[in-house]
């Protein structure tokens, strides 16, 4: 890979997304920002080679956003992209439905229960109480508290394997 801007070959969008697979959630190192659904758009300016990336926060108060933004910039620049612009936007509000299948698997690897797919904004609060145990895959579980170690996690208890576990919250 050539790093000089003048000999730089414009990468395909799929190539950029592949590079961005290396950028992980700073709090959940098994999942990439692409699979988390936090990267909403990637655009390429053919004339200048500048790459535009749009990020959206999982939670409005997520303290990791600035870190994620810098990590995206750093990663793309290291691949020789001449210029990067990262915008944090709420144009498309993040929903846990934006997690990819690979992302759900990555959460399981980190022993976090992936959120159920909501399909649409569900207003029924009871729905938030459901989670599958990431240890024994049991469904005999109970929401202990909707607030956990980070804004995006809830704490549940599994009556089958008698373990507390964390869930990535459906939202």
């Amino acid at each position: 890979m050539q790093n000089e801007a003048n000999s730089f070959q414009l990468p395909a969008k799929s190539q950029i997304l592949e590079w961005l697979q290396a950028v992980k959630d700073p709090e959940i190192p098994t999942i990439s920002l692409v699979d988390l659904g936090v990267i909403r758009a990637v655009e390429l300016d053919e004339a200048t080679g500048k790459v535009y990336v749009q990020l959206t926060p999982t939670f409005a108060g997520c303290p990791a956003m600035d870190y994620m933004k810098r990590d995206v910039e750093r990663t793309l620049l290291s691949h020789g992209v001449p210029a990067v612009e990262v915008e944090i936007s709420l144009r498309e509000a993040w929903s846990s439905d934006m997690l990819t299948d690979a992302g759900r698997e990555a959460l399981r690897q980190h022993k976090l229960s992936p959120p159920p797919v909501l399909g649409n904004q569900v207003l029924d609060l009871d729905f938030l109480e459901y989670a599958e145990c990431p240890n024994c895959q049991g469904h005999n579980t109970e929401l202990r508290t909707p607030f956990g170690a980070t804004l995006c996690r809830a704490v549940h208890y599994c009556h089958d394997c008698r373990q507390l576990f964390e869930q990535f919250k459906p939202i």
Binding site: L90, A93, Q121, L128, P146, K169, I171
Partner: peptide
């Protein structure tokens, strides 16, 4: 649209 999803958890709590 962003905030209302988070507020559901506050109300649930």
């Amino acid at each position: 649209r962003k905030l209302r999803g988070e507020l559901k958890y506050h109300v649930l709590h």
